[in-house]
Design a protein around this nucleic acid. Sequence first.
DNA 1: CGTGTTTGACCGGCGC
DNA 2: GCGCCGGTCAAACACG
Length: 424
Amino acid sequence: MEEKTSTKIFMELDEPGKNRDSENKTYEPSSLHNNTPGSPLLLSLSLNNTAQLPHQIQGNPQIQIGKLRVKLEEEKKENENLKVMLNLVNERCIVLQNRLLLHRLSSLPQNNHNLPKENIQDEKKPVFSTRQFLNIDEPSPSDCGKKEGVTLMENNENIKIGRNFAYECINNIHEGEIISKKEDQAFEAECRRARVSIRARSDFSLMVDGCQWRKYGQKTAKGNPCPRAYYRCSMGTSCPVRKQVQRCFKDETVFITTYEGNHNHQLPPSAKPIANLTSSALNTFLSNSTTNLQYGNNISSTFLFSSPLSPPNSNAIATFSPSPTCPTITLDFTLPPSNYLQFKNHKQSSLFPFPFQGYNNYPQSFEVFPSMIDAERKLALVDVVSEAIEKDPSLKATLFAAMSSFTNGDPLNINNHSQPSKSG
DNA sequence: CGTGTTTGACCGGCGC
DNA sequence: GCGCCGGTCAAACACG
């Protein structure tokens, strides 16, 4: 957008024999703008009078240049302000889009395998417009992203409209934030109760989480002969964080580590990746959970989770179980990377930037796998696919076959699943 | 002796 | 109300 407008200005200034004083070299656009080499000129949003520019250049060149420079400085300043504002609007739009997505996921009926086709189609849409979230008909300030982007390119009047749009957008979004404050409070309360469970192999880097733990109990839980160990964080005084570690009895190389609570002390650098992982997972899912509880839903969902950890440990299949007493997020790192690829390619999953940040402000992304099946079934699915892929290099066929067994023969229709056989 | 682990007892929530 | 189960407590123990 900026570069386009800038190019237009260049062309007008450089056009020979039209408005340019050929004897005066100071009309060189680069000398006018003092821009760094290669950087676009920052005139795009605010040049209300680009059409008049050639006329202004006529007459005394020195005076006109002086006037132009002053005007240019003003425009640059305004342009900077508008850029800041635009960034703000974009950031807030992303926040609203994610809120909308989580809202939509949680609003789906529990038996959503009977969803009409349109709804399933909707789930595949990568992003949702702000207007959809705010439920406002056009024309609306909530259309700022789209409308501003178009109108700013057209003419000066539209630039003004676009600018007003931006202002209105900000005001509008602020109202939305106020409305959602109550949800945020519920969200915080949820954070304290929620758990993040990590399934990882014993040689996996996640097993060393950088914190100091003191074991305070051990118990053999029902359904798993392997004892579950209970740990308390001993790094801070009365740190409320606890974790449970249990071996998976199906595959003893797999450990299930469950974290609960927030650290009340400074974390060492070595502990931050896991802290980021768990906090971003919590952030990712708990809005969904809060809305679920609010609407009385008790649905689980599965996502491809792009964690803040470095590759190759950067992806996990995440399962969210929004239990009213203890919502739990399970991040499964036990699948080989190829499984994630298959999982990802299988559905037209969408990718969008995720605004929530971990302790360390890692940039994060969040991939949506639009399904709503219960946690147990999905974990069973993960096991089946994992085993099959280990045995058979023909990943795609095996994966689709496994998916078909859960989806009444249609591997693409994850919502229309049937009960898996326990023989797995 | 200080720190961490082990392990049986205890408690509270939940389902029947 | 009762029993089951997960989670926690705390005394005993191990180790440096």
